[in-house]
């Protein structure tokens, strides 16, 4: 998949009007990665999680809490762990989870959380690329920036919780300390924003900064020479086996190097309407 050169945006345009055309589930589920940067000079931020390197130390979990002042009872990043097998052939594995900063399906390029947001599509906004070009895009309370980050504008948020329900990964929650700007009787939705405040200033996300195993690799997929691009190519990560819930067609942009098939054996999905799969706990 990694060497498939598809002009993503034009294809999207092409498919845009087709609506509910029956495309094979597998084709929909295959994550799309544009390594050619053919259409725009905006970066496409992505995370590679090298599961060989994750030692389950939780520095990422706590660094995220600290950096983003995340209240107790909810997380923006967690580790799931599981002990498997029968003594003495017992194994224990770790799986770091965060917002997948999905590209959205191929028809409309809108991830489910954005689609669910009543405030989307709202007004137009401008994204300035490094080379000075302007990309226009629509914002909402939850929206996708042209560099791929799925962000929340808490001033616009009305606290309806639809995005929280819509995320198949269950990485969103209400922030008990921030009121929804659009309805101050409610709390705003919150989740990982890839530390946009750091990245926009040229600094890596906090979880990446602190990861002693260097299991988290963050970078620009639109830059073919970036470490993430190289890893995606080298490990052939743009396959349904290297992202979470590929079958949802969300086109996640957190890729896992997973030689031991941990995604399949360990990942605990959210139960409908619940978020307790997204609480970091050590037994």
């Amino acid at each position: 998949m990694s060497d498939q050169k598809q002009p993503e945006i034009s294809r999207r345009k092409f498919l845009g009007g087709v609506g509910t055309v029956a495309v094979g589930a597998a084709a929909l589920a295959t994550p799309t990665v544009n390594l050619e940067a053919a259409q725009s000079k905006a970066p496409r931020w992505a995370m590679v999680m090298d599961l060989r390197r994750c030692i389950g130390c939780r520095a990422c979990t706590v660094a995220c809490k600290s950096e983003n002042r995340v209240s107790l009872g909810r997380f923006r990043a967690v580790i799931q762990e599981k002990t498997m097998g029968t003594f003495p052939n017992t194994k224990k594995v770790f799986l770091p989870l965060m917002c997948n900063h999905c590209e959205g399906n191929k028809e409309d390029g809108v991830p489910p959380c954005v689609k669910a947001c009543p405030e989307f599509p709202g007004e137009r906004a401008k994204f300035k690329t490094a080379d000075g070009k302007t990309i226009r895009y629509r914002v909402g309370a939850t929206y996708k920036r042209p560099d791929g980050m799925i962000l929340i504008d808490k001033e616009k948020c009305i606290g309806c919780g639809k995005c929280i329900d819509a995320c198949p990964y269950g990485v969103r929650s209400f922030d008990p300390f921030v009121k929804a700007g659009g309805d101050t009787t409610k709390q705003a939705a919150d989740k990982c924003d890839m530390c946009a405040h750091r990245v926009d200033n040229g600094v890596e996300p906090s979880c990446v900064n602190t990861c002693q195993g260097r299991a988290r690799i963050f970078g620009d997929l639109n830059d073919p020479n970036s470490h993430v691009s190289e890893l995606v190519k080298e490990h052939n990560l743009a396959t349904p086996d290297n992202v979470l819930l590929a079958e949802e067609g969300t086109n996640p942009h957190v890729f896992y190097i997973d030689p031991n098939n941990i995604l399949k054996t360990l990942y605990t999905q959210r139960k409908k309407g619940k978020l307790d799969h997204f609480v970091d706990q050590i037994v």
Binding site: R69, V70, S71, L72, F177, V178, K179
Partner: peptide
């Protein structure tokens, strides 16, 4: 006092 964005 609770303050938006501050965990106290």
């Amino acid at each position: 006092c609770e303050m938006d964005g501050d965990t106290g």
